[in-house]
Every structure is written in C-alpha cells, then in structure tokens.
C-alpha cells in the first residue's frame, strides 16, 4: 500500500484507477468471487482518497462491498 500511495500521485487518472482497481479486486474477490468485477467497477466511481481509505481499512471496504452488492441486486 505504501508503494501505491507513493506511485499514485505521478500516475494519470486512468492509471490511478487501474492501480486502485487491481488492489480492490484482489481483496473483493476473496469475499465476493462472482461479483468482484462489477463491485470493483462500481467502487472505482468513488474518488481516489476514499478508495485509499478502503484499502487501509478492511472493515470500511467490507461495508462498501455490502452496499455495492445491495445496489447490484436491486439493479
């Protein structure tokens, strides 16, 4: 995560989302294997500082994953 936070500011917006997406996906895949791609896609619409908070706090990430699953099921 330290590598990510130090690399992120010098990356393009597209690259920033890509890097955050890779990290988020690997974490989300552990709890939601079938929906991980869509959940990650949804969460990437959130601003990067919030996404970094999710990577730093598993509890925060899981609460956002739960929200995303609820939205997906309602969709």
């Amino acid at each position: 995560l330290e590598t990510l936070t130090s690399t992120l500011p010098s990356a393009s917006p597209q690259e920033q989302k890509q890097m955050l997406g890779e990290r988020l996906f690997s974490l989300i895949q552990a709890v939601q294997p079938t929906l991980a791609g869509k959940i990650t896609g949804m969460l990437l619409e959130i601003n990067n500082s919030e996404l970094l908070r999710m990577l730093e706090s598993p509890e925060f990430l899981l609460s956002k994953v739960d929200e995303a699953v609820a939205v997906l099921q309602a969709h």
Partner: peptide, 22 residues
Amino acid sequence: GSSINWPPEFHPGVPWKGLQNI
C-alpha cells in the same frame, strides 16, 4: 439511455474503461 451495461466490470490485468465517459 440504457443502464443495462452498468456497472462497468473490472478485469484484473485489463485496462479499465470506466473513465471513458468522464
């Protein structure tokens, strides 16, 4: 428009296209 393709799905190792419309 149709929201049937929402949300964009992220695939590891594949460039994410979700920002194209921003």
